[in-house]
Design a protein around this nucleic acid. Structure first.
Lengths: 201, 201
DNA sequence: CGGATCGTTGATCAACTTCAACGGTCGTGG
DNA sequence: CCACGACCGTTGAAGTTGATCAACGATCCG
């Protein structure tokens, strides 16, 4: 079976070795539980009312996770680019229907692991369990920072903060996606940017 | 050594058994790594610029975690009551200086585990690792929901949502704490509540 | 070439904040 | 045990921030 290209295999192996120390057999076992999927721009990998059966590791490309309210407004909850994980965690962890979309912003390549496979991995080897624990903890810390920023800062300062940390990501995003991540309308984001240009000159 | 009262021991044991199946020795080993602390109302258990060395499990009482901006506004990031965990995760996980306060809202009793002790526990037994992984994952899902709510809902609907899920917590909170959790001023929260009373009659 | 999608701009409007003043309550020291 | 001050919630008026709506131009892709 060749579910995974050599390149993807290498990338995921290297990634996990940042967190736990695996021998070759272990690394192979870990990677073999993943499937490689090519995803076209605008294609969904998670949709509301369907259970998120997988966690997705981005080998190449970019994704956006968002929810749509009753009024039809969409709101970005997170992004993922190379070496990030993405899914609807609430759906995946509890295996309940998702409430959010996850959509590809570019043609992408992902490695995904099924809920049951991940469960097996966690049970099979203490190190794998450790790895997923670390990923979850880091996600937790990341979201706590995100909440803090969102509550404490004005729209303009949220934008500044994002650009100072993630301008490399911002370059790859359509502006409406960034706006909805930062919790403002595309129009207002446009005005903020315009203001900055004016101030500089 | 009697670091922990029988009551606290029983509560923590029962709690962890919800997630993993421990025999008596394991449960004892787990619990023995915790210290019981009595905390007075208004006392801090985490402070900015100090590293959060512990994760705290609330046996009895209530806590609030918040940050203070340069302008002096304070913003609540989370609460914890009985059977919840609280700390500055960003500080604890990376063992870096904290940016938030965690303060007791009532006279409370907590069980805390030191970073190094927790690390030992995780290494000692696969089940303990699993337990902490589950806690982290649930925290992650919780924060993702919280972000979604905060971005998508108006102030009044955030209040409604909170009350429908956590009115038992709201009863134990000062109103300014709830307001800053929901991302609005105490004055505005007061007006929302007043509006509702008027509508009912 | 033509339509859909995306970002921009300006005018108007709503949501929420800020500021200031007041009354109630709680805890602390005398 | 009372009195005082600090803290908390409330109310109203005025001010800001950011949303909404509508129209236009640019670009991308088929």
């Amino acid at each position: 079976m060749h579910l995974i290209s050599m390149n993807s295999k290498k990338i995921l192996s290297q990634y996990i070795q940042n967190f736990v120390d695996l021998n070759e057999d272990e690394a192979n076992q870990f990677v073999s539980c993943f499937e490689e999927i090519k995803v076209k721009k605008r294609q969904f990998i998670v949709q509301p009312n369907f259970i998120a059966h997988h966690v997705h590791f981005v080998v190449k490309g970019a994704f956006r996770s968002y929810v749509v309210t009753d009024e039809g407004n969409d709101h970005t909850t997170s992004f993922a680019i190379e070496n990030w994980w993405i899914t609807d965690y609430n759906s995946f962890i509890y295996q309940q229907p998702a409430t959010s979309f996850v959509i590809a912003l570019e043609d992408s390549v992902i490695l995904r692991v099924h809920y049951e496979k991940q469960k097996e991995l966690k049970q099979a080897n203490h190190k794998f369990e450790t790895f997923f624990r670390i990923i979850a903890e880091r996600g937790l810390a990341f979201f706590q920072r995100r909440i803090t920023n969102n509550i404490t800062l004005s729209a303009e300062r949220r934008y500044d903060q994002f650009m100072s940390k993630y301008s490399h990501i911002a370059q790859r995003l359509p502006q409406y996606a960034l706006a909805s991540f930062l919790g403002m309308t595309p129009e207002f984001l446009s005005k903020i940017r315009n203001n900055k240009v004016q101030k500089k000159s």
